[in-house]
Design a protein around this nucleic acid. Structure first.
Lengths: 103, 103
DNA sequence: ATCTATACCTCGCAATCCTATGCATAGGAT
DNA sequence: ATCCTATGCATAGGATTGCGAGGTATAGAT
């Protein structure tokens, strides 16, 4: 079960603390939401490529346990977008919650 | 600006209080969200047709100011769906808010 | 030796929403 | 009188988002 439109924001947020690679980003989102949010690989990788294309994240080749991994780090521009996305989420979620009834 | 996936739920919610027609439902959603949520007609009408197709709302021909209007009322089944949708919204929005940081 | 988890990727499909467009009427402005 | 705007319903084309299925490959456990 997922929320359309929130994935790019969740990815950026995951990269604020430290650079990471796709698979781990997905795990992190799942864990931090206690299993509620569970984006699939077929969704995550294209989303990462798009963010890179837009210059919101940068990737570099990393090594872990003798295997190559594609690491992503958030850019200056990405921080700006994340900040706006957070504000937008707050505004929209408050609006929906107001209508649907809180608690 | 809108939230993908919440429209059917918002429509059902709007019909709980009283039957209404498309144009007014859209206005109501916009007003109750203080302009934040603003679904377009090209989105709303197909959504209503789909809800009717699924048996969650029923429509009937109404008259107002000498002009015909298509009124919708929520069904038993629609109430059940609304209840589940509310719960799902709570779960998902809580998950996203937890990750993106509250307040 | 095989299975599972890790790790990355692409393709086709469905759902959702937007813009643009069309039609039609009522009421106010010019 | 005519035009514009708001009301009211509807469809078509396109973009975006996400999913499932499939492909490739390595490391570690059984």
């Amino acid at each position: 079960m997922n929320f359309k439109g929130t994935l790019p924001t969740l990815i950026l947020e995951a990269l604020v603390h430290e650079p990471s690679h796709g698979y781990r980003i997905a795990q992190r989102i799942k864990e931090r939401s206690e299993g509620v949010l569970d984006f699939k690989e077929g969704t995550l990788y294209p989303a990462l490529h798009k963010l890179e294309n837009e210059g919101l994240v940068e990737s570099y080749e990393g090594m872990e346990k003798g295997r190559p991994r594609r690491y992503y780090r958030i850019t200056e521009s990405g921080h700006g977008t994340l900040s706006k996305d957070r504000a937008e989420w707050r505004e929209l979620s408050r609006a929906v919650t107001t209508i649907l009834g809180e608690a």
